[in-house]
């Protein structure tokens, strides 16, 4: 009798641990069906959409709850520079971008907890209304713990292994229908504080 109870109990315990554990692991590690990669940026075709599959919906619930669908807004995120190295809040990066085919756009830096980095700098983002463009319409910005001589600056102080999100509101079809190859800003690491790299 005891053997039987142990048999059933072990099935329940192991089954629950494996089932729920594997689901949580997939949600945490960003298993996103419908994921689109675009030069280190990534997005999903189905964020916010009623067509989202359970895995995308679960992931979006964790990292982008209350996000809009892609006809309204396209969100891209990234966690690494052009060389594929994970962002580090202590480093200095240069963002190079051009005009983006949307009514309004912004780029925001988030700490690993998915909230704005706590640093008192009040510079968590740049956006289409504030960025100072170059003569040819392109623009350059700096991501760094200090502004230095940069005109356009996003503070990465206390950002740790930060991530970036670009929001493109009311995107033109050139964006929403070409998620994988629409030109997006590039981000190059220039220096790292004290790391000598």
């Amino acid at each position: 009798m005891l053997k039987k109870i142990a048999f059933v109990l072990s099935i329940i315990l192991v089954g629950a641990a494996v089932g729920v554990g594997s689901a949580m692991l997939m949600i945490r590690n960003g298993a996103m069906i419908g994921r689109v990669d675009n030069n280190h940026w990534y997005t999903s075709r189905t964020v916010g959409s009623v067509d989202a599959d359970p895995y995308t919906r679960a992931l979006v619930a964790r990292i982008g709850l209350l996000g809009l669908n892609r006809q309204e807004t396209v969100y891209f995120s990234r966690t690494e520079d052009e060389a594929g190295v994970v962002f580090d809040g202590a480093c200095t990066y240069r963002i190079d971008g051009g005009p983006l085919a949307a009514r309004w756009w912004s780029i925001t830096l988030y700490a690993p907890d998915n909230f704005l980095a706590v640093n008192g700098d009040h510079q968590p983002s740049i956006d289409a209304t504030s960025v100072q463009p170059n003569a040819d319409g392109s623009w350059t910005a700096r991501i760094a713990p200090e502004q230095g001589d940069a005109v356009n600056w996003i503070s990465s102080r206390n950002g740790g292994a930060f991530s970036l999100s670009i929001r493109l509101y009311n995107p033109e079809p050139a964006i929403s229908e070409h998620l994988e190859d629409v030109p997006l800003p590039t981000i190059t690491r220039e220096a790292c504080e004290g790391a000598g790299q």
Partner: peptide, 15 residues
């Protein structure tokens, strides 16, 4: 079987 069922159930319930 139980693990698969709970995996799917949890994924649906999570959002």
């Amino acid at each position: 079987l139980l693990a698969a069922a709970l995996h799917v159930a949890f994924m649906f319930a999570y959002p």
